[in-house]
Design a binder for these strands. Structure first.
Lengths: 230, 230
DNA sequence: GCGGTCGATGAAGGGGTCGTCAAGATCCGA
DNA sequence: TCGGATCTTGACGACCCCTTCATCGACCGC
């Protein structure tokens, strides 16, 4: 949250648009329009994330990313108009943390930005979510309850993280699917039921009458922390 | 939740379908069938979201979005039959918040609508409705009265939310059905009676002589808050 | 007061939602 | 490539809720 982000794209209109969305999400944004300026800005301000167009004048996104990787730890998301697999692999080979192909929806870009920020957060303590005796360590992908380690599959972890991050908030199955697997993922809502059931077996004292992972009939699920039984 | 949404599509059948789904989700929908009407409607009512077809007579979706962006803050989702890159980039360049390509699944459209509404909601706490000691928390899907939690079924929750949102306003049974469940929902008006009765049992001190959920003979029901006994 | 209309209430049915299990599909590492 | 873990789906039953119906009482105009 509230990260410093560099946006580099020679399409000034697009850069301004991306800036708008990122700022709306509470981030501080600097925009530049060529690779050289991007590199200079990164060296000066060390942003939390750089969103780089691949095709830019002076220095292209690949080059910038290459130098950044050699010099430090700035996470990178590529914007690319190309869709061939070669380009994508090349982008990731240079150490980009993610890429978004144009045309993209603001929603998709924002989701990937937040995901990368979560993954690369400098302060390890910031990536730990607590709710009562339940602790979720995003970085280590670890769940512990009352000191006891709880093994979770990737899908279970994502669903649980979303629920625990906002205790008592009711999530529809659709929204849980989105939060856990992204927007383009199409699975039946029934899948969520199964994951929740498996989580209950690992977390609940009596899985048959859940106290933490609670069903809200006709709406969805919520996580209830020990303190606030709401 | 419960947002005012404008749907503009010259395909009246499709517009009606979209309207149905949005209303079922609890939103208030206005449909128009050309760009000029869409623009006029936005200026008059300032909806929380505009769902615009790109290809429309008089004024197309691009034009409408362009003007809206220049004038204010109405979020826009495009419906587009086109899939070429140019059109999509153009859509984003004009500041659409998202786009959905036809043919689309209702589920996909709804997911994107909810996501945009979440992102653009001005006040995060706006999901709480108060009337006297009664509090309806949309996000937690929770009703509390004088601090005491009141368990509600989905139908009861929707009806109560509608009534409490507009204290002292009298709703006909038909209007309540529409507001709570959407236009396509066909249930006899007597159904409302039963829901109101069940609500009274949970909310009223003496359900036989209601003080909050009041019957207006020959018209319908209204919610009366403590302060304004009207 | 009287009749007709409207609303309150209880009970029954049918439909929808959820929990659970197991089998098939898919992913991933060895 | 193979094998195991994981994800997804479909089926089934249990349970809750919505809706409807029938009946009785309340209200209103006359």
């Amino acid at each position: 949250m509230n990260a410093r982000i560099l946006v580099a794209d020679d399409d000034r209109k697009l850069a301004a648009l991306v800036r708008t969305y990122l700022e709306r999400a509470g981030h501080q944004v600097v925009t530049v329009h060529d690779g050289q300026a991007a590199l200079a800005e990164c060296r000066r301000r060390q942003p939390d994330l750089a969103v780089l167009d691949i095709m830019m004048p002076v220095l292209d996104g690949h080059d910038v990313c290459h130098v950044l990787r050699a010099e430090g730890e700035v996470p990178v998301i590529f914007l690319t108009a190309r869709t061939t697999e070669d380009d994508l692999v090349l982008g990731l080979g240079l150490g980009a943390d993610d890429y978004v192909t144009k045309p993209f929806s603001p929603r998709e870009l924002m989701a990937r930005v937040e995901a990368v920020l979560r993954r690369t957060r400098p302060d390890p303590g910031a990536s730990v979510v607590r709710a009562g005796s339940l602790v979720i360590d995003e970085e280590r992908h670890l769940v512990t309850q009352a000191g006891r380690s709880v093994p979770c599959t990737p899908a279970e972890f994502r669903i649980l993280r979303e629920l625990v991050t906002h205790p008592s908030r009711v999530y529809s199955r659709q929204r849980l699917l989105e939060a856990a697997f992204g927007f383009d993922h199409d699975a039946l809502e029934r899948t969520v039921d199964v994951h929740v059931m498996n989580l209950r077996r690992k977390l609940e004292r009596d899985p048959a009458s859940p106290e933490r992972l609670v069903t809200v009939y006709g709406v969805g699920y919520k996580y209830v922390a020990e303190e606030q039984e709401g």
